[in-house]
């Protein structure tokens, strides 16, 4: 690196050295997200406690992150006391109780999978009538109760990358996905589509604000209390050869979704 680049790095370091992430950032992010979809308060106290607990994991994370970049200052100086993480004025929700000193973080409940799905084309309430050629069920699935998912890829390897993934959102989870779609709508990302006699929303999720690939996604309303989210991995989308083909395949999958029950 030449002198100018070295100097740039040093000066940017000096310029940003005073900056520290707010100690209640996790709190803010979680509140902001949950305020929108109004999920239960259960688990929040554990998360605040986890934020404190997480500070101890900072060095490990810094070491373990494969793409972590060294920074001139430690990331966060220490855990925020629970009292500092409460911002009751920032929300209309009741402030969570700070964890008592002898609170123990509840053990996470194991996430269930959907079992052996055979070819994977029927899972819980959904039947997938069409998938592009060459795809096999990945032998991977997750069941969170009000949302569940499985995927398909080229080799059927549960540790492999997904090509197509489908989430079904029901109950409380519907509100989350609806609000997410509304967010895209508000930002002018994606478009309403008609898929057979259903309405849907086509969008590149996640990234792509400046030309990044993102995840081509079709969110489809399949009744008042159910949404289906069909996603193509960015790599698979490239394999399909262009946005038109991607959208066509997403819609075709959507058109052929039926109730399994």
């Amino acid at each position: 690196m030449s002198t100018l680049e070295d100097e740039l790095h040093r000066l940017m370091g000096e310029e940003t050295a005073r900056l520290r992430a707010a100690p209640d950032l996790v709190d803010r992010v979680v509140r902001s997200t949950r305020r929108r979809h109004r999920t239960k308060r259960i688990g929040f106290t554990a998360l605040v406690a986890a934020a404190a607990f997480a500070a101890a994991a900072v060095p490990a994370y810094l070491v373990l992150g494969p793409d972590s970049v060294a920074v001139p200052e430690p990331a966060v100086s220490g855990p925020a006391p629970a009292s500092e993480t409460s911002r009751p004025e920032a929300t209309d929700e009741a402030a969570p109780e700070p964890p008592a000193i002898d609170d123990t973080i509840p053990a996470p409940s194991p996430t269930r999978d959907l079992g052996d799905l055979g070819d994977g084309k029927a899972f819980k309430s959904l039947r997938v009538g069409y998938l592009p050629k060459r795809l096999q069920w990945s032998h991977w699935s997750l069941d969170f109760g009000d949302k569940y998912t499985t995927s398909w890829n080229y080799d059927g390897d549960s540790n492999g990358f997904y090509c197509v993934q489908i989430y079904v959102h029901e109950g409380q989870a519907v509100q989350e996905v609806d609000e997410r779609v509304q967010g895209y709508r508000d930002e002018g990302e994606g478009a309403e589509v008609a898929v057979g006699d259903r309405t849907g929303y086509l969008v590149r999720q996640g990234v792509g604000e400046d030309g990044g690939d993102g995840t081509p996604t079709l969110v489809l309303s399949v009744g008042e209390g159910r949404r289906v989210e069909v996603m193509f991995s960015p790599d698979y989308a490239k394999d399909l050869g262009g946005a038109e083909a991607v959208d066509r395949e997403l819609k075709k999958i959507g058109e052929n979704l039926t109730a399994a029950d």
Partner: peptide, 23 residues
């Protein structure tokens, strides 16, 4: 999101938020 995922998210924010804020 389950508790384990919450823990992971909190750990990530605690570890990397300041660096990301600078970016």
């Amino acid at each position: 999101m389950n508790a384990a995922e919450d823990d992971g998210f909190a750990a990530f924010v605690a570890a990397r938020a300041t660096s990301l804020l600078r970016v």
